[in-house]
């Protein structure tokens, strides 16, 4: 399982940190519908909108590929960290035989 865990983490890192640079930057389904039908302006400012990684961009990094890579890799680490907590929570307790 160790190898498998490392493989999935690596794949996720490459996807979030590398491949995601090539993702479509067009608005997603909901945002497009909101723009087309005219309720996009209902959106109010996000309370964390000026956080360092808002919008999957890293504040202060000019290079857009690097900016997104840092954001993506940080996200993988953060989900991994909380995810490992989830692992300890859901796993069966060790049984003494």
């Amino acid at each position: 399982m160790k190898k498998y865990t490392i493989a999935i983490l690596l794949i996720s890192g490459v996807l979030a940190g590398g491949v995601s640079y090539f993702a479509s930057s067009n608005p997603d389904g909901l945002n497009k519908v909101a723009i087309d039908l005219g309720f996009a302006e209902d959106e109010t400012t996000h309370s964390n909108g000026d956080s360092a990684l808002a919008g999957y961009e890293t504040a202060g990094i000019e290079n857009s590929a690097l900016s997104r890579a840092i954001a993506g890799i940080t996200g993988v680490f953060a989900t991994g960290l909380v995810g490992s907590g989830l692992y300890f929570y859901v796993r069966k307790p060790k049984q003494d035989v």
Partner: peptide
């Protein structure tokens, strides 16, 4: 089960990564 439990966290990581791929 102990052996499969890492999948709980790995699923979250993988879904986070793939959600970035519009």
């Amino acid at each position: 089960e102990q052996e499969v439990a890492p999948m709980a966290g790995l699923t979250a990581v993988f879904i986070f990564a793939v959600q970035m791929l519009n």
